[in-house]
Amino acid sequence: MSSRRNFKPWAFILPGVIAGGVVLGVPVVQAFWTSLHRLRMYRMHDQVFVGLDNYARLLQDPLFHLSVRSTVVFSFGCTILSVIAGLAVASVMSTRGIRGTSAARFFMAFYLVPFVATQVVVGMMGRLYVWEPEYGLVNFLLGLFGADGPMWLISRDTAMWATIVTNAWRLTPLAVLIFYAALATIPEELLESAEVDGAGGWKALALIKLPLIRYHIGFIALIQLTSAFREFDTVFALTGGGPGRTTNVLSLLVYNEGISNSDMGMANAISFTMLIIVAVLSLVYMRLARLGDLGN
């Protein structure tokens, strides 16, 4: 009876484990296997086993180190910005007097636009309409105040920040949705009694709301971090990795090595290294944010 009871939950999750194994496991194993080979796109029939040679070359390549740095700055920048923006918008939207109104519903739908837009479209819009130095929105707005904006995507000082802001804009709606839903679960009486005790506004946010939605913040930050870490489309459409290699994040390096330089072995080695970096980052983060305690 006891063994049957133990078996039951496993039986329920077995189809999911098998499906996950096939859908995730097979490509991961295949990517790792390819990363151990020399495989050029123009000689697909000529696959040679080279062991860990691709990894050894990768670790010595200054461009890989540069891309890791760019990816870390980009990922953390996007995560921090989108979480802060998401919290700010969700807090305003969940304020008494705004929450539940038709204006709030309209803005919630409005905020979802970047989230449902295709990433390439977001990148192209950013390049052509937002950051474009002569006709773009940002420099137009700066011009209203008499300021000359820089060439955002062309200058090495500003390209990364413009790229982070664009991608954070795309990621923010998810944070808004989750935080808005989380804030709605906080009992009204709790906030009212805090208000009676003199803890209104910022104090209530810092001492009551944020602690109560900390798991949601942790969860969203993890999702945004891993999403930004893998980001390709927006960066490719926005800057193509430039100027120079300023925004050449790891996923673009994979593309350059695999497609432009035809080195599929190296491209897979970078991809697999990315997987390891994301996995380690996620584990460390989950431990720090105590996301593992969530089920308890």
Partner: peptide, 24 residues
């Protein structure tokens, strides 16, 4: 040769860009 694109064309672009933009 099939290798022209990988060995000459793309690497020429990377070489020039890496020098012009002070990557190396």
């Amino acid at each position: 040769v099939a290798e022209y694109g990988a060995a000459m064309y793309n690497l020429a672009g990377e070489f020039a860009a890496d020098v012009v933009f002070d990557v190396m």
